[in-house]
Design a binder for these strands. Structure first.
Lengths: 189, 189
DNA sequence: ACAGGAATGGACCGATCGGTCTAGTCTGCT
DNA sequence: AGCAGACTAGACCGATCGGTCCATTCCTGT
């Protein structure tokens, strides 16, 4: 397995990540992925024999892991849960604004498209969201909350994050992100 | 304009509403809409000369209005804002569960798909969300909040609703809706 | 009854979809 | 040097996409 092949593979996944975040699963064609990544069609099916589904599943998993890593990193410091949520929303907001509101939650668009009709992709999203929520819940438990309360609060906080990312993209404004961060302070105090 | 034509037109919009809520804009083909509604291709372009975009825009606007009406109706009673949010989430949750988690927010999937790439549809979604938020904000003002605080709280509550609907669909569980409703009690108290 | 617009039914179009296939090229090992 | 497997390049496939077109049928007002 040469380094060149690895790079092509990585470029395909990266292009897929960018495109499905902005346009979703159905809105993103393989021709678009090929054009964006510069890879020929043959390479795609060499690296990903199962085609689009495999490529998208991997892109979603990678994106989910990246956020989880960021979250774990923030949770490892001395920050409160509310401060972590604020930090997360700031990071997402910056990305979003700079992309012309094409980027938000890297999973959400696909997650909604496939929630009822494509079990494998749905499960990838479910697992990623689960990891994010778990990270927040752990932090809350360390802060003294009981397990049940922490899970519920983390679930609500994640809903706040996801909802505000959606509204921010639709409204082309970071205002919902700020409102959500303030609400999180109240919620996670 | 005969009654028969009106009915065909309505069935086309209704079928579109159902399909785009579950699969989004790109995931829904006109052939699917035609099959679901039983209308022939010619009728679609007779009633909607601008094709898919016009049909989807109308479907989104109708769905947005329906929720706004429900919201207005609930806000007109003696309920608190938190109770209204709870009622809204209960109604959405029932629909969602009964549809096998195919239905959630009727706008969200399309809203994310088109947030950066299809201005007319984006604006329809933005306006609908704005109406929902306004209804909640008015109720909060009537409850004694100042304008700015009410707007911010309504924005956060709407984010909570949208985020929990997304998570519920992805997880195939109503739990996130319940967590969001409880969080709304804390937030809107 | 009948004229004329409203509405239907469906064949047809070029473009694009995801996917297959194979000839050719690159690369590292012996 | 030369062989084998990794990888690329792109032509090609049937299916489906959104959209156009027109002959036919239905309905309504006179």
């Amino acid at each position: 397995m040469g380094a060149k092949g690895e790079e092509t593979r990585a470029r395909l996944v990266q292009a897929t990540r960018v495109l499905i975040e902005a346009q979703g699963y159905f809105g993103t064609g393989l021709n678009q992925v090929l054009a964006e990544s510069g890879a020929p069609r043959g390479s795609l099916y060499f690296h990903f024999p199962d085609g689009k589904d495999q490529l998208v599943a991997l892109a979603l998993a990678e994106a989910g892991r990246d956020v989880a890593d960021l979250l774990d990193h923030m949770c490892a410091g001395e920050l409160s849960a509310a401060e972590v949520v604020r930090g997360l929303l700031d990071a997402f907001g910056e990305r979003m604004e700079q992309s012309g509101y094409a980027k938000g939650c890297p999973l959400a668009t696909v997650a909604l498209e496939v929630a009822a009709g494509h079990e494998p992709l749905r499960r990838v999203c479910e697992q990623a969201y689960g990891e994010w929520q778990r990270a927040l819940a752990e932090l809350l438990v360390r802060g003294g909350r009981d397990r049940a309360g922490a899970d519920a609060a983390a679930g609500a906080a994640l809903a706040l994050v996801e909802g505000s990312l959606l509204l921010a993209r639709v409204q082309h404004s970071r205002l919902p992100l700020d409102q959500a961060a303030r609400a999180a302070e109240l919620l996670l105090a």
